[in-house]
Design a protein around this nucleic acid. Structure first.
Lengths: 141, 141
DNA sequence: ATATTTGCAAATTCTTTGCAACTTA
DNA sequence: TAAGTTGCAAAGAATTTGCAAATAT
């Protein structure tokens, strides 16, 4: 947590942003969680901790963290964005169960390599990608 | 066009839905386009043709077409859904330019095969997938 | 000090829904 | 004519924004 806070603090300083109490609390919460969460989830967790931070600030801070590259947003097709921190996480993709909604992370180097090849062949330089496999997990067959 | 209309008509009949004028016009427009379009785009094209069909009907018909499997929705991360018909189109994925917004379709069998393997290894049966490569096209470097 | 940030409430944007009038089969 | 469909306007849901008061550096 200390490390993450420092990393964000550095980013803030470099950009002339301020490390407010609200941002500190949000950061402490975001980087402790190793799950996907929505803006609303984050709002609720903070309230449970006794911190009532406005939705506006939650949204503003999340987009700031996304710009910093320390957090990424994911669209699982549920009408709202999910977030997840990527500090110390390698990039990964997602398997999403259409039955129970379970999300399983995976990574596969061959897949990434192949993607790079495809993009190159079309004259694109990849900056990011999103691969979502929708289907049914064993329990939901 | 005739073929597509028939296919949709058959789907409608099977489900006790009716082929209304509005649906016919929408279908005629959707299956003529070979591009990605939003609900709003569709609304505008129809108005240009002199057909003023309500947004509500546009949305209802698009979701009906998605359920039928004849149209698919795509999320290019622009805050609204894009649609595209898949009749006579093979499945494909998308390269999206972060510079100019250009969308290039591609398909790669090896990629799909590999995805299947990954899913299987995790006990998932894939029902669909979405792969989006975000980056910069040659012109936007 | 002063520029940034916050919270609030209002505004936006995309999409969905209730309902009475109207079509289609 | 019965059931499904339409348009309208209102409702929803998620997110963004304007602004005055508060806060960090």
């Amino acid at each position: 947590m200390e490390k993450e806070l420092d990393t964000v603090a550095k980013y803030l300083k470099e950009h002339d942003f301020k490390l407010t109490n609200q941002r500190r609390k949000i950061i402490e919460t975001v980087f402790v969680s190793h799950d996907h969460f929505t803006a609303d989830d984050l709002y609720d967790v903070l309230r449970e901790k006794g911190e009532s931070i406005s939705k506006a600030t939650i949204y503003r801070t999340l987009s700031l963290l996304c710009e910093s590259g320390l957090v990424e947003s994911r669209d699982f097709g549920r009408g709202q964005l999910y977030y997840e921190h990527v500090l110390g996480h390698d990039h990964h993709d997602h398997l999403i169960c259409n039955g129970c909604g379970k999300v399983v992370e995976f990574k596969n180097a061959d897949l990434e390599k192949l993607q790079g090849k495809v993009a190159k062949a079309r004259g694109f330089r990849i900056e990011s990608h999103s691969l979502r496999l929708f289907g049914r997990c064993k329990a939901c067959r």
